[in-house]
């Protein structure tokens, strides 16, 4: 770049700024279109809820489960919802959370464990706003922070147990993104379940090191299959390639976080679904009662936060399904303690 020219940039830059100001200023003040408000009885105050999520609201996984729960509750719980998706840059997410807080939203869902420290820093500045974050357990001892986490090891255990029953080769393969949060819990639960059914089973597990590298997940699945694995499972939004491997080799697949039967209607045995509705309803109830936080909610099989959805397209032996249902019952009633 020519150096002397750069000295002359000041004026043009100012011109741009002015042009921008004019363009913006001349437009009439616009209303923000974030509102998705509904017809509502006047007696109940509308709660303004914001969701800040690291992935897309159609990720077939973690974010989609939360987004759909919010949408489903919108009318019955009188919510006005605003969403910021794909906020995987932690610093940018922090700005967005801050912006929602300053606009007086009643509840801000910081839907990623990497947002926790941001919530911890912001909550004291906005005591009237409720923050919720997860998956995590800590409310940092603050009265306006909720925490929520998913005991995904429970469903993992049930599915691992069923997987071991299905396996003829006594080798199963489990794929995770990075070894943290509900993904790690699920992997550990699945392995524990498989070992509970069959002590000698080989339960291979791998973390690809990325939430978004489909190719690695698919390649890991292929390795498992080549080492004899005949049952596969995996967590995160990048499992589609791996499910493709299960499909190509006609192997059973167990899903988690969101219904994955759509991805392979003939291969998905069951999916562990996150149902955030009870947790959201509980939080909303707290907020309406004047309690802004301080509680940790855990999604479990026993409280309806997690469900095992069997895929009708997969012909699962009745005995295995019965065992799975029995395990769910047992876990619901605390008769089995799933290791974490």
């Amino acid at each position: 770049m020519p150096t002397h020219l750069t000295r002359k940039v000041a004026v043009p830059l100012a011109a741009v700024a002015m042009a921008l100001t004019l363009a913006v200023g001349s437009s009439s003040a616009t209303t923000r279109t974030s509102a998705t408000s509904n017809a509502r009885p006047s007696s109940i105050k509308v709660l303004r809820v914001a969701l800040v999520a690291p992935s897309a609201t159609n990720d077939l996984a973690f974010t989609e489960s939360m987004y759909n729960a919010l949408e489903a509750l919108k009318v019955s719980q009188h919510l006005q919802i605003s969403v910021s998706e794909n906020e995987f840059v932690v610093a940018d997410a922090a700005n967005v959370i801050r912006q929602y807080a300053s606009e007086g939203y009643n509840l801000i869902l910081a839907h990623g464990s990497q947002y926790g420290s941001t919530v911890e820093a912001l909550a004291p500045q906005f005591p009237k706003v409720s923050f919720a974050w997860g998956t995590a357990a800590s409310t940092f001892g603050m009265k306006n922070i909720f925490a929520y986490e998913a005991a995904s090891n429970e469903g993992g255990y049930v599915q691992g147990y069923m997987g071991a029953m299905l396996s003829k080769s006594h080798v199963v393969g489990v794929i995770g993104p990075i070894a943290t949060g509900d993904a790690k819990l699920y992997v550990d639960g699945f392995v524990a379940g498989a070992k509970a059914e069959d002590k000698k089973i080989t339960a291979h597990q791998v973390y690809t090191g990325s939430f978004s590298d489909d190719s690695l997940m698919a390649t890991a699945a292929k390795t498992f299959v080549s080492d004899g694995a005949d049952v596969l499972t995996g967590s995160s939004q990048s499992v589609v390639g791996a499910i493709g491997v299960a499909k190509a080799d006609h192997l059973p697949w167990f899903g988690t976080q969101w219904t994955q039967a759509v991805l392979a209607p003939k291969n998905v045995v069951s999916s562990q679904l996150y149902n955030w509705k009870p947790t959201l309803i509980a939080m909303i109830k707290d907020i309406r009662a004047g309690k802004r936080g301080g509680a940790t909610y855990v999604l479990k099989l026993g409280n309806g936060g997690e469900q095992i959805q069997f895929n009708p397209g997969y012909k699962l032996a009745k005995s295995i399904k019965a065992k799975g249902l029995a395990l769910i019952k047992a876990i619901e009633h605390n008769k089995i303690k799933v290791p974490t």
Binding site: P54, F88, Q114, T118, A121, F211, S212
Partner: peptide, 12 residues
């Protein structure tokens, strides 16, 4: 200079 004053990774 972050709000959080921690270093955190989401894997990327």
């Amino acid at each position: 200079g972050s709000l959080a004053h921690r270093m955190v990774t989401d894997g990327s």
